[in-house]
Simulated assay, not measured.
Amino acid sequence: MDSAERAADGGGDRYRPGYELVAERLLQHIAEQGLHPGDRLPTEQGLAELLGTTRNQMREAVKVLAAIGRLSVRRGAGIFVAAADRTLADEELAHFQPTDMAHVSMLLDFRRLIEAETARRAASLATPIQVRKIRESAEESLRLGTANEVRGFARADQQFHDAVAIAADNIFLQSNVANIRRFAAQTDTLLFHGDVPGSLEVAGRQHVAVAEAIAEGDPDRAVQLMTAHIDTTQRQFERKIRNRMFTQGPQQ
């Protein structure tokens, strides 16, 4: 049993795959060492020895971190800290920990603030064409959510939130909404592995309610409904984590 698996034997980590723990520790190591985009890391074996795990666990951790854009693996050259794109330029955000519940809670809190404001502004500023786009994407998300079509819902969900951000008529709000979704996708990939944290139908119905408030030009109602939507997302997320803790035993 390696150290990641030993850690998984106790506390809240017992329900988490070993490679997930190793991925988190590798991100922490990068942050603690002050490494920057383009910096080269040791080999998989070297990293495994450094962090006290097996090469197989490290290989899986490197794969998933490369898949979400945190590492770059170049054949024949080695493993590197991935070059930050414009959305990860801030040094603190570059060290976001997708499986750290404190970081995830901060992300949801930030999302609540940003998307409530986009809803408020959209209700005041949206053009008829923008209102139609918001409504159409909300209704599509409800249709796909009711059918539990996960991939289709994810596209409609993105289109809805993007449409609200566009209607807010502020490129910085729009950029932040896109940035939040990129970070959230990292968490979804590492923690849920393609699963969803809660009811897609509930989320779709909330989209439709927000869209109607925007169409009616009611900023206060739009803020209230968007905030409730993010609150529901957070509760579903936390419930999903608790369910994983109670239904999965230690990883072997």
Rank of each mutant, 00 (worst) to 15 (best):
L142F: 12
L47Y: 11
D157V: 08
A102H: 09
V73C: 13
G76R: 11
P42I: 04
A156Q: 04
V81F: 10
R242E: 09
D231L: 11
H36L: 15
E238N: 06
G249S: 09
A178Y: 05
L108I: 05
Q33L: 04
F160D: 03
A211Q: 00
R74S: 11
R155N: 06
A215Q: 02
V73I: 15
R244L: 15
F96H: 09
E60F: 11
T53H: 02
E20N: 11
Q224V: 00
H95S: 11
I30P: 04
R155Y: 09
A211R: 00
R25H: 12
L27K: 06
L173H: 01
V202P: 00
A119W: 00
I134V: 05
M1V: 14
S175V: 09
T189G: 03
L71C: 06
R70T: 10
V22T: 11
A228L: 11
L50W: 01
D85M: 13
V64P: 03
V150E: 10
E136R: 02
E92D: 15
R151V: 12
H36S: 14
L41P: 01
H161P: 00
R239K: 10
H36W: 14
L144N: 07
V104G: 03
N176F: 04
L191N: 08
E92F: 11
L190A: 00
E117T: 14
L27Q: 10
L93W: 14
T189I: 14
N179H: 07
A122I: 07
F237S: 02
E140N: 14
T53G: 02
V64T: 13
L88Y: 07
L142D: 02
Y19S: 08
V81I: 13
A67W: 06
A7I: 12
G10H: 13
V196E: 13
R239L: 10
Q159K: 05
H29Y: 15
Q252C: 08
T127H: 03
L41W: 12
F110L: 14
F192Y: 15
G194T: 14
A184N: 06
A126T: 00
L225F: 07
A168N: 04
I166F: 01
A77H: 13
L41Q: 05
G76I: 08
V131C: 00
P219K: 02
Q248C: 04
A94G: 12
R112L: 07
A167H: 01
A122E: 01
L65G: 10
D39C: 10
E32P: 05
G10W: 07
Q236K: 08
L190C: 02
F192V: 14
L191Q: 13
A84F: 05
Q159M: 08
Q186L: 10
S137T: 10
A228M: 10
A7R: 13
Q159F: 01
P37K: 12
L21F: 00
H207W: 05
V73M: 14
D188Q: 14
A66V: 07
G249H: 13
R182P: 01
A215Y: 05
G152T: 15
R182Q: 14
R221G: 04
A66D: 11
A184V: 07
L108A: 09
R112Y: 13
Q159I: 01
S3Q: 07
S199F: 03
A215N: 02
G78H: 12
